[in-house]
Design a protein around this nucleic acid. Sequence first.
RNA 1: GUGAGUGUAGCUCAAUUUGGUUAGAGCACUGGACUGUGGCUCCAGGGGUUGAGGGUUCAAAUCCCUUCACUCACCCCA
Length: 422
Amino acid sequence: MKISRVKGFSDILPGEVELWQFIEEKAREVFARYNFSEIRIPLLEKTELFSRSLGETTDIVEKEMYTFADQDANGALLTLRPEGTAGVVRAYVEAELYKAEPLRKLFYFGPMFRRERPQKGRLRQFYQIGAEVLGREDPFVDAEILLLLNDFFLIVGLDGVSLELNSLGCVQCRPRYRQALLAHLSERAKSLCPNCQRRMERNPLRVLDCKEEACLETTRDAPSILDYLCEACRDHFGAVEKLMRQTALVYRLNPRMVRGLDYYCRTTFEWTSPRLGSQNTVAAGGRYDGLVEDLGGPPTPGVGFAIGMERLALLLEMKETREAPRPELYLVWVGTAARQWAFPVVHRLRRSGVRAEMGGEEKSLKSQMRRADKLRASFVLIVGDDELKSGKGVLRNMDTKEQSEVSLDRVEAELLAPKLGG
RNA sequence: GUGAGUGUAGCUCAAUUUGGUUAGAGCACUGGACUGUGGCUCCAGGGGUUGAGGGUUCAAAUCCCUUCACUCACCCCA
């Protein structure tokens, strides 16, 4: 009986994995330029970490987490991480990273798990590239990571995406806005969709995010969060905007943009693409100045983002297909004596760093050549009885069709010469 | 969780409307033409429980029921 993969979980097969490697490589490059350090944390955390940091009433915590009881006597509830920030902050606090160094710039790659209904750009195990900057309240840091993301998109060749920016205010000013919005909404509650009527009680800001025509209409002249920011938040956001203009980073101000997780405050942002279908966010993030303290650390501001890797891959995949690596040498043998000779030679070449392959089974010269061609080998070395006798093998450059003789007793030395490109 | 759509060869798809012989094509794969030299061309070959199970019928890929999977949308979000 065949066993299939779990719903919403996917394999990244040869042919597509090259694109992922490319993305990861470029991400490392950009993080290095911006002086970020990698952090690796567990996929499994205590459930409490997520319910505390994301918010008890978010959809993720309420119905999307993979949670189970540990087999230990204490039976603690454990959860496969649905996002990265909580775990990074937990590690930051646990290792007291703030003690030796006031500013930490961290990045990570890895899978996240949410039990949602799969669709385009949405899987139950999905990969994120994330970054967190801990220890600075400075708007220059907000601008820095926005520029980092922009640079990253530039070097992977992503285009057609747009950036939206907003400020959600802080614990000082958001309650005031919430109240004003609520006042506006309750007067018009009848014209809101049933969903939004529920949202009004739980998280009124989400009403602004509704796609329902009627709700869009009723919130058209709703108060804007940007008019309710306290002085400190207004200054902070103003400074971010100024830096955006100074660095010519194009964005659209979107005072209706809200975030799904409770810990966000002040600057929030989102990169979207119209080509992704309804899951159109490629990257998003924002500031979370209270989170470290909530998780038992000292008051420490933070700001970060996450990039959805399969969404990014989806967008880049449409542009061009990336090529699989090609073998540098394919050794074609004719006759069992030649095969016996070839096997250790290929082994030694591989040990010297050459990407090498040889013909398998008892196959004709022609079919081995065909296979070498299919794999796009750069060079083919042909060895048969004649060559064994004369001690000279035939080396063929598959691109130029040039052939030359190499002496078999010093074949490695000859092959490792510049011919093979090092 | 709700709704809609789609399941035929390794891949992309015909044949389903109107049930009718042995389910086809292109690409890919294997071999040959070219007995030890790749790509192009030509020829040949292998490969299918038509997602699965049941039903109707002389006859089912085709009609009906059940089920599973996938996809997209709602929702939510990276």
